[in-house]
Design a protein around this nucleic acid. Structure first.
Length: 488
RNA sequence: GGUCGGAUGGCCGAGUGGCUAGGCAGAGGUCUGCAAAACCUUUUACAGCGGUUCGAAUCCGCUUCCGACCUCCA
């Protein structure tokens, strides 16, 4: 925990030294998915980015409570007025299913994808439907403090009143006049006092499936409310990090801050962290644009955009090769480059794990490399620079393995610590070898047969074995010490 | 239209006043029966035009192009 970590804060638009409110404890809240359809790859990028932060904070000694919600109610379809319809309820009607069936299906799907991408589970994963009471209580407080008003069973947040004493645009950097002048006029908003006002609680129509009783009648919570209520419940009214996708800044997080300030008098988080978008041909990947594709399509290659499938770890590595605040453009060429790079890194790691020979003397010092790895991550979680350093480590490992470089036991030990810390713990990368215990024995036997053929200069046979294994997906490497194999 | 952000070599992608980012691809070499892998060497760059500076990809201004948000979105 002796690291000086700098984090880019959207509030100040600067990198700031990270100082937890109550070290070594860190509270981190990340806006999770709305579970009304499959997560797409862009969503995955965001959660991989926050997983990286969670892992690094933990690796440098912090005790992190990582809260990531699942929004299973209240998320509006269409505009923010009462014309909107609950996304989950809408899908349920179409599919002739109970809303909670939809929620269950996509929650399970989301968790499965998170797991294959090797994202650690958050400490707490609260749901909106599980916190209706907390949300109603928050609406009551905001009403009491005078920042909200009720119209016919729906409660709205009064943005213009709030902005008289507070700064509504503190996060987005926009001032209220600009917002008022540039907001498009939408229908169905007659009952709102101001056009920026948003719903805290929404009156349910009779046919609405997901609804709860409240002091204002039967209804359901507004979209932004659950994050305010749940972050407060599990992290307190003032915690360290609040994160989400960059597209949440102007509306969701702006409203969230307003709700918390109105309710508790304080901006809930010291550091607001936002991840950038995944693009396809330069355009944001999104459900509404129709250019999104699903994780399993990427893994299997079953999408017209894709030349082939890529393993989950290749996808993770691809995303970590870009900084979280840059847009990342998806492409087949880039994916293939990452696939090969990832393999190179993991091959070196495997050589290290299998055991390298230590010498009495050393020609390399690992300590400076270790420092550079920490420095990269301390600079706002700069994983691409970290990965560049890990390729330097790989070069050292390969050279030692080839007998071209000497390393002593102390430095070898440090190199092992470095690779384990950064590849496994921080980046969350893991080998994807087929988990079949018999396979290595069979392969070793075949390799042995081939070595016999080679010794007899029966190259026709030895090449046939090598080419055959290559087609199945195993690569043979001949060297003076003998032949080794690896999964291609 | 308003607000904000971006433009880096064949591709992806770091960097931010002077020192090689890195990966993939390309070229040459070492090794090998031949390969592959690995190692060594190496080509291609900072959108355009001005300005500040001893020195700018990096700072400032303008131009062009692209994107995000303003409406549900990670």
């Amino acid at each position: 925990m002796q690291q000086n970590l700098f984090v880019y804060n959207t509030l100040t638009r600067k990198k700031e030294l990270f100082k937890p409110i109550n070290a070594p404890h860190v509270g981190m809240y990340v806006c999770g998915p709305t579970v009304y359809s499959d997560v797409h790859l862009g969503n995955c990028r965001t959660y991989i980015s926050f997983d990286l932060m969670f892992r690094y904070l933990t690796a440098i000694g912090y005790k992190v409570r990582y809260v990531r919600n699942v929004t299973d109610a209240g998320h509006l379809e269409g505009d923010a007025g009462d014309e909107g319809e609950d996304k989950i309820a809408k899908k349920a009607k179409l599919a002739q299913l109970e809303p909670m069936e939809i929620v269950q299906k996509y929650t399970v799907g989301f968790r499965d994808v998170m797991k294959v991408l090797n994202n650690l589970p958050p400490s707490i994963e609260p749901t909106a439907t599980g916190h209706i009471i907390e949300q109603i209580e928050m609406v009551k407080v905001i009403l009491e403090k005078g920042y909200a008003y009720e119209v016919d069973g729906t409660v709205y947040f009064d943005v213009e009143k709030y902005n008289k004493t507070k700064d509504y645009g503190i996060l987005s950097g926009r001032n209220l006049d600009d917002l008022l002048n540039n907001t498009r006029t939408l229908g169905g908003q007659e009952e709102k006092h101001g056009k920026l006002d948003f719903a805290l609680w929404i009156k349910a129509k009779p046919e609405h499936l997901m609804k709860w009783p409240s002091p204002w009648g039967v209804g359901f919570p507004g979209w932004h409310l659950e994050c305010s209520a749940m972050s407060q419940k599990y992290l307190g009214s003032h915690f360290d990090i609040h994160g989400g996708g960059l597209d949440l800044v102007p509306t969701h997080h702006t409203n969230e801050i307003a709700q918390n300030v109105a309710c508790c008098g304080t901006n809930p988080a010291n550091y607001w962290v936002h991840t950038n978008m995944l693009t396809v041909n330069g355009q944001k990947m999104s459900k509404s644009l129709g250019n999104s594709f699903l994780p399993h399509e990427l893994f299997s290659g079953e999408n017209s955009i894709l030349n082939k499938g890529y393993t989950p770890m290749t996808v993770r590595f691809f995303m970590l090769q870009a900084h979280y605040r840059s847009t990342l453009d998806f492409g087949n060429e880039a994916m293939e480059a990452s696939e090969k790079g990832f393999k190179r890194l993991m091959n070196a790691f495997a050589l290290l794990t299998d055991g390298l020979k230590a010498s009495a003397t050393t020609e390399v010092e690992i300590a400076p490399l270790m420092e550079r790895c920490y420095a990269a991550m301390n600079d706002d979680f700069n994983s691409p620079v970290l990965i560049a350093e890990l390729f330097e480590a790989s070069r050292i490992i390969n050279s030692v393995y080839d007998g071209k470089l000497k390393i002593d036991a102390a430095n070898l030990e440090q190199l092992t610590v470095l690779m384990n810390t950064f590849v496994v713990d921080v980046l969350g990368l893991q080998n994807e070898q087929a988990a079949n215990d018999d396979l290595p024995k069979v392969l070793n036997f075949i390799v042995d047969l081939r070595s016999g053929a080679k010794a007899n200069k029966d190259y026709a046979t030895s090449d046939k074995i090598r080419d055959g294994l290559s087609q199945i997906g195993f690569q043979l490497k001949d060297s003076k010490e003998g032949t080794t194999w690896s999964k291609a």
